[in-house]
Design a protein around this nucleic acid. Sequence first.
DNA 1: GCCGTTTTCGGCCCGACTGTTTTCAGTCG
Length: 574
Amino acid sequence: MNNRELADQFKLIADLLEIKGEVVYKVLAYRKVADSLNNLTQDVNELWKEGRLEEIPGVGKAIAEKIDELLSTGKLEFLERLKTEVPPSLTELLQVPDVGPRKAALFWKELGITDLAGLEAAAREGKLRSLPGMGEKSEARILAGLEALARRGDRIPIGEAWPLAQELLAFLRKLPGVVAAEPAGSLRRMRSTVGDIDLLVASKNPGPVMAAFTGRKDVVRVLASGETKSSVEFANGLRSQIWIHPPERFGTALVYATGSKDHNVRLRELALTMGLSLSEHSFQRKDGSEILCDNEEKVYETLGLQWIPPELREDHGEVQAAKAGKLPRLITHDDLISDLQTHSKWSDGKLSILEMAKAARERGFKLLAITDHTPSLGVTGGVKIEDLARQRAEIDAAQEELGDSIRILQGAEVEIRADGRLDYPDEVLAKLDIVLASVHTSLRQPRDQVTARMIAAIRNPHVDIIAHPTGRLFPNREGADLDLEAVFSEAKKHGVALEINAHPARLDLDDTNARRAMELGILLTINSDAHSPADFDLAFFGVAIARRAWVTPEAVINAWPVEKQLAWLKNRGG
DNA sequence: GCCGTTTTCGGCCCGACTGTTTTCAGTCG
């Protein structure tokens, strides 16, 4: 059982206990452990073997025993018994907006509803409205929520949400009386997926701004509209909400709206120790007087903290680090001066090498690796060995034309075949300037097999980088079941770099794994995987993942001076 | 169920909005 699978068990326990009506703090305790496990930078099995389970945040004696039972036997008696008391399928209902644990319990106990289909049928038959605390409007909201859920599915990739948010922000910023408009929520924290689009507006006159927002043509439903907060749904099922606060309170409001919830709780606890109560409006002293903050820096300063970049605000140690003045200098998009994974017409890219190099140069890159696919990945039209010399000639010609404004490398994204062999023989790899190795197929191999395959690639002396290590694709393809600890240990030993692939459908390594790699001192690389000029800009999302992983520029090859990048490649003997 | 600059018990952040209610529960972030 891996970290995520274990976390799922505890999330299920939390949901079931909540529906059962258990005291809320017990539920929160289980939920916190699920979150801790999901964000753990080590394999929980290692901690378990070393008897260090209680070092995991939120894990005490009782939960440590449950983890022990789950990892030893694969089952948990406590959970099995719980499942006989509350049907597990009831947790489906919690996905529906406006349905929480109390209503789920109500529907189950009064109407025998145990899943989404049952809820929808009952709502359509008008059976919900007569329940205590329910009415026609509540029933209609639940039906609307069910429809939105069906349309939208789950969370959406940040690559889709970000452009939509920019469009909404541009709209808001043009409205009269709007002083500022910023992204908030998981969007601003740059999580790889977001549930809805949160936006914060500064204005002294919120009424007309709210009206303009909720009155947009693409809004199909207004879910809430108040003085400080409104929430709407778009035709595709996506939801967005805005808060509007006066400019002099923008700082506290932005901290609040950005979250995460756990980060906010941490800040509020800290405020209380200083005799202050922190809300989205202000700090309040015990005598009722307020401290207003028009920007975030003032909020953190009042708490005796360094300003914390939004990407770190997950209650993963950032508040403690800020208190000690030890926040890392996070990498930025501007730090990147190379892109080490891109594709040209030689495989599945859209442009010639010269066109790609010009596009890279326009974006300020000084170094570009052309890393086309290899033949076994048939759909990409991989470069045959006999064509590599002609590709080299094209690179030389492009280099000639562009002079020293940008340096172009001949590389390859070499397929790691199902049996662990690479798609080019060593003598061919030896002639390339840079070699990335990656898996695209046979991702469902058993853990041992797929891990061995990856390790074999890392041990090949010509391989410089493992690209998108797990092979995951949003939203539907799970990554390979890799033993990442083993992969990390081997990468460290052989000095092979691991990629944070910036394509929003990949974002692989993810933030949690990238943080673990960083802690282990493994080199990282952030690449766009560009197949067309616009794709170069996707590096932005890769940087976001790196920032969420506390990554500094020193750890990222692409942020090094060109000569250092080239020297690293040369010294690897590739 | 966890946890400790109020420490081994008694707390555990703060508020907006809605709907069904005549003062509040439920949900959400």
